[in-house]
Design a binder for these strands. Structure first.
Lengths: 103, 103
DNA sequence: TTTGTATTTAAGTATTGACTTAAATAATCT
DNA sequence: AGATTATTTAAGTCAATACTTAAATACAAA
């Protein structure tokens, strides 16, 4: 489940698309494609991966598909990470508690 | 740079290894390998990927290689994510400011 | 209702990635 | 030194993924 999100972000073009959407808010598939040298079809395929990972959402507007970040999914990722670092830091804390105790 | 981290986390076995290290703190390559059905060589290759992404660090202890999370790199990832969500939320805030203003 | 514009889907190819077994390296113990 | 244990590296194979061009779909406008 998270692995899908991570693999969506693992590809540099897709990571840049996320950056663009975070910075600029809402962009059409065409506007996104212009930022890259590869074909519009390739970008469309990347957008599909991001959509399936629920990292972005689309709405139709005339012929355009306008993409936005899905902040809920970004938050999901953040909390996954946060849980791991908290667990880790918790362990370090009990380690230093232990060291303080035996000292 | 981040893409390397994300692709390290994109593989389910590697993601599980990160989970194990977050939960249990420090494990040898062998202890990690026992948790999976694939060969020790395969796990070693996964550990190499995690090492190269700086998500884990190793120390030698007799014949063993003992692995730990690298909290600095986990934190790096967290702050990358946080920056994007903050940027996004900032945009939403100025949007609602704007809507409040014209109302 | 045909033409244009935006985007996606299909099909094929080439690269990358994950696995296997076998061999190599590292450190310890007898 | 030689044997044992722990781990990594090498080489090869198979599947997954990222790209291309061409065709299809969606909608708007003439």
């Amino acid at each position: 489940m998270q692995a899908t999100m991570f693999s969506a972000l693992a590809e540099p073009t897709r990571l840049s698309i996320i950056d663009m959407l975070a910075a600029r808010g809402e962009l059409s598939a065409g506007e996104i494609a212009h930022a890259f040298t590869s074909s519009a079809a390739a970008i469309s395929q990347h957008l599909k991966v991001l959509r399936e990972a629920r990292l972005v959402v689309v709405k139709k507007q005339a012929q355009q598909r306008r993409y936005q970040l899905n902040p809920a999914q970004m938050a999901e990722l953040e909390s996954w990470l946060h849980a791991r670092t908290a667990q880790w830091n918790g362990r370090l804390d009990s380690m230093s508690d232990y060291l303080n105790t035996i000292k």
